[in-house]
């Protein structure tokens, strides 16, 4: 009998504690980020698909089309073509194609690049109804479009 009463009191106490806990949460601010209107800031090392980086002084793409990235890519998803512009000793990139359907975002290309011409983007709102859109992404075009913005 005493044990039963003790258990009853303990149960009531725990019910009251539960109510207090939820009420405390009730008066706190919601933690939801209201997505389409609010977005979280992405962490500095967020890995989106790779993009070509421009030289800050000249404004040209840094890439020298050395093809190191193409060679090191374990998924074989990069195709680089370059040509020497008249009067220059370095090569310039003419075509940089990324097959994002295969890319595993391992970052070896970014690491291996001798002139730091590659970086991870922070683009994550990627959606398409056609596979082709991500099978062959033209990063040169993307860089131009990015400048236009």
């Amino acid at each position: 009998m005493v044990a039963a009463i003790k258990e009853f009191c303990l149960g009531l106490h725990s019910l009251a504690t539960g109510l207090a806990v939820t009420l405390e949460q009730f008066f706190r601010r919601p933690v939801t980020v209201h997505y389409p209107w609010e977005v979280l800031e992405l962490p500095a090392r967020y890995r989106g698909h790779i993009v070509l980086v421009r030289d800050e002084q000249t404004g040209r793409l840094r890439c020298i089309a050395c093809k190191m990235c193409e060679r090191i890519c374990p998924s074989d998803c990069i195709v680089v073509e370059g040509a020497k512009l008249p009067g220059e000793s370095r090569k310039s990139v003419t075509e940089f194609k990324l097959d994002f359907t295969k890319c595993s975002l391992c970052g070896l290309c970014v690491e291996v690049c001798p002139v730091d011409a590659l970086a991870f983007s922070k683009r994550y709102n990627l959606a398409s109804t056609r596979k082709a859109d991500y099978e062959s992404m033209d990063l040169c075009e993307l860089a131009k479009a990015g400048d236009a913005k």
Binding site: T22, Q25, F26, R28, R29, P30, V31, T32, H34
Partner: peptide
């Protein structure tokens, strides 16, 4: 109310 208890905004 359910939203506030779960710290969500609820219907908006």
């Amino acid at each position: 109310v359910a939203a506030r208890f779960q710290r969500r905004p609820g219907p908006t």
